[in-house]
Design a protein around this nucleic acid. Structure first.
Lengths: 218, 218
DNA sequence: TGTACATCAGTGAACGCGCGTTCACTGATGTAC
DNA sequence: TGTACATCAGTGAACGCGCGTTCACTGATGTAC
């Protein structure tokens, strides 16, 4: 991801060759909190990566190909969250709070990969949207599995766990998107708000499950 | 909003003069489900409105001015929802289901004004985002008032109603955004999902309130 | 080890395009007298 | 009613710019003999 970390074999007379990853890194540097991929120009990325515009084509067929690569990186970042959260939960802390904290950390991590999912899922082309939707669904599936496991462990059944997973994911993403525009010292507030929100959803889902039970028995 | 509905006084020898509203209508026609305002070009809007590019400046200082006007229209559309929902709820139907149905109707209404809020809140410039955030907060405030009124009427206290209003609003918007890409016959599913999600939040909020009570008493 | 050669990531120049913005203009409309 | 005039929404032409894409090229690297 960083440039110049390979010694370029030996002779430095010629310009160091550039890799796909260098182009991706350049694009990430340009994608601030407000810009969507579709507003990046090929020439701009090439300029940032310090190559001639036409050299871009040596690595990607066009900007769309770069965009898909970026979105997939975003998905990988998402999967990191749930893995991290699983590890941390095993230490005995609250699952909800831990997951949200991990999410916010990733959201503000240097690479800003989650921003990409946030934006392109709403504003991207059909292909981008589909790619983002794929990543989100994969995340929701994992989360759903954890929810079921958790509720079984606690002995409390849960109503429509897949729906709960979707609601939680989408809500966290939506709140995360607005949190991005807040100063850093207010992240704590957002975390607290999200924790409460997800607790409500969780409680409500359990409550609905007991109502299911009652009507099934009667 | 429609063109040519004013008879243009009398002589038709000269091209009919065009109004701010005509430009807004032209922009709305161009803003399909995928395009954000910032990808509209001034020349494109002018072309759609059938005027010379430079004539645009007679009506708006620049494209940003047009964008702000569009976002405000979106806000007006939002306020319509809550007003409509209030009227319908008075007829005795479920508040949650009614509100969501109204929202979805507005989402798919011809002018597509809600799309604009959905997109520009995430991908717009700082000014656009701030404008959207303003409209959303206004909506949440109204919703919060309704929630409190409702819970008092039912005799069930509710925990952190402002937070509940925010969670509901953001979740509905997020789910609405993805629903936009679904075929029309699947709207029903999304409505059902949203109804269940909001019921969970509502139930959870009541449950938290009783927990508050208990700890306050003890 | 030395030589000939294929490969391929890099390059500079050029193309046609749509863009935002400016300029000086035109001519219908409404108003003052 | 008729005339002179100010207003102002419209216009065509032109500008310089950054864009994506193409072309024929260069020259370092690795390979075959």
């Amino acid at each position: 991801m960083t440039r110049l970390d390979t010694p370029e074999t030996s002779s430095a007379s010629r310009k160091a060759t550039i890799s796909r990853d260098d182009l991706i890194a350049a694009a990430l540097r340009l994608l601030g909190p407000h810009r969507s991929i579709s507003t990046l120009s090929l020439r701009e990325v090439a300029r940032e990566a310090d190559i001639a515009p036409n050299s871009f084509y040596r690595h990607f067929r066009d900007m769309d190909a770069l965009a898909i690569a970026l979105i997939e990186l975003g998905g990988r970042s998402l999967r990191t969250i749930i893995r991290e959260a699983r590890v941390r939960v095993r230490t005995g802390r609250s699952a909800i709070r831990t997951s949200i904290e991990t999410f916010m950390e990733q959201l503000y991590a240097d690479e800003r990969l989650l921003h990409i999912l946030l934006r392109e899922g709403i504003v991207g082309s059909d292909a981008y949207k589909a790619a983002v939707e794929r990543e989100l669904r994969a995340f929701e599936d994992e989360l759903c599995i954890d929810l079921v496991r958790l509720s079984e462990a606690a002995g409390k059944p849960i109503h429509a766990p897949a729906l709960v997973a979707t609601a939680m994911t989408r809500l966290v993403f939506a709140m995360g998107a607005t949190a991005l525009d807040l100063p850093r010292e207010r992240h704590g507030e957002v975390v607290e708000q999200l924790v409460t929100m997800l607790r409500m959803i969780m409680l409500g889902a359990c409550e609905l499950a007991t109502q299911d039970d009652r009507s099934a028995v009667s």
